[in-house]
Amino acid sequence: MHPSSEPARPLSPADTLRWLPPALLPLGAAIAAHAVLAPGSRAAVPSGVLSGLGAAALWGLVLVGSLVVVTGAVLLVHRLRGLPRVRPTAATAVVALFLLLTSLSTRLPPLPFWDGLERNWQGKLLDLLWVGILVLVLRRWAREEAGLRWRIVPGSARPALLVVLGVLTVFVALGAVAVLSGESAARPVDLEQVLWDATVPNLTEELIWRGAMLAVLDRALPARRRVLGAGLGWGTVITAVLFGVGHMVLLGADGAWSLSIGGGVFALVMGLALAWIRARTGSIWPAFALHCAPELGADIGVLPLR
């Protein structure tokens, strides 16, 4: 087949920004709702919302700074090893946009509608809305490169299932041990907790991190190695490091900052595992299942013993 007759690669988020204006609409609507519902003033966004957005932007910039550092290290390795030159400028800029979008969405103060819930459902649903708009606008890219498809790579079902069930089993056991030792006596496991661990929050993270981000970086940094049957590249390393930083540098709902070294290391390891299963199967859904496994496993291990 003549090269000119081969189908062109689908437009990615790094090729066009036509996805960005509609993707901003959910966040803009939530901010507008805060302005409308603010007691005593309907003319401006409440100061608490503005301060929350400022803190969220600062947290996002921490991730963006980490992205620049890690990508710079990758380029240095390429140069020192004499590898083919790569230019990931556009991909890095788009991933920075993703990081800022998820930072602002998940750290916008909740509207009164969500007051009765303990978890940040508003933030995760805003994340789901903007990334859903992204994949809807760039449907072919989402299907072919970001893993938004049900069909998996032939021969990958067995290893993926073994990994998911293995992780689930380990965390069921750890949850049970924690209860028997008295370490998790205060850990609530109710219906909201189980739904949180099994649905939207983990799905949005996989769509953003192992779907959109990984696909954009893999196209810009195509150097790959085969690891247990999966083709992995620098995108795996970058997304895993950023995932670790995002779970290490924490910003609470009250604006307080904290550091969790253990959480960051665990997230880094999970980021590598999630990228592996995403690459091995070619689909985002096994990665979603693996993402749910530790949290649901801990829930299951706790419930029968409480």
Rank of each mutant, 00 (worst) to 15 (best):
H291E: 08
G48Q: 11
A142T: 02
V163Q: 01
W59P: 00
V94F: 03
I152K: 09
P201W: 15
L128F: 12
S41D: 15
A38W: 15
S51E: 04
L24T: 02
L27D: 03
D127P: 00
P13N: 02
L76H: 11
P84G: 13
P88C: 03
A212F: 01
I238Q: 10
C292P: 03
A160I: 06
A273F: 13
I261F: 15
Q122R: 07
A275K: 07
E118C: 02
T71W: 06
I31T: 13
R226P: 00
L117F: 13
R107T: 07
A176M: 10
A253W: 08
V177Y: 11
V170K: 05
Q193A: 13
G54M: 10
L161W: 15
L180N: 09
P304V: 07
L125H: 15
V172C: 05
L24P: 00
F288T: 06
G229C: 04
E145I: 01
I238D: 09
L195V: 14
V241Y: 00
E144V: 02
T169A: 15
E205N: 06
L108C: 07
A178K: 01
G297Y: 04
W19H: 09
P3V: 14
A73C: 10
V137N: 07
A73Y: 05
L207S: 01
L63C: 11
F266G: 04
G264F: 03
R219C: 08
A275G: 15
P46D: 06
L305D: 07
G282R: 09
R79H: 11
H2S: 15
L75M: 15
L259K: 05
S156F: 10
G40K: 11
L11M: 04
A186H: 08
L161T: 14
I152P: 02
R226C: 05
L195N: 09
G155E: 08
P109C: 05
A240M: 15
V70I: 13
T239P: 00
A91H: 08
L25W: 14
P286S: 13
L27Y: 05
L83V: 07
I208P: 01
F288E: 01
P286T: 13
W285S: 06
A230K: 03
S66N: 04
L111D: 09
P201F: 08
L11G: 06
L274H: 03
T92S: 14
H34I: 06
A275E: 07
L303H: 13
I300S: 01
L101F: 14
G263N: 15
G166A: 12
S105T: 10
G231N: 12
A256I: 06
G282L: 07
G175E: 09
S181C: 12
V135M: 02
V189K: 07
M213L: 11
V64R: 00
W141A: 02
L268T: 10
V194A: 12
S5H: 13
R9G: 12
V49Q: 11
W150T: 05
G166D: 06
R119H: 14
G116N: 13
G262K: 09
L272A: 06
A230N: 04
V216H: 02
G263Y: 14
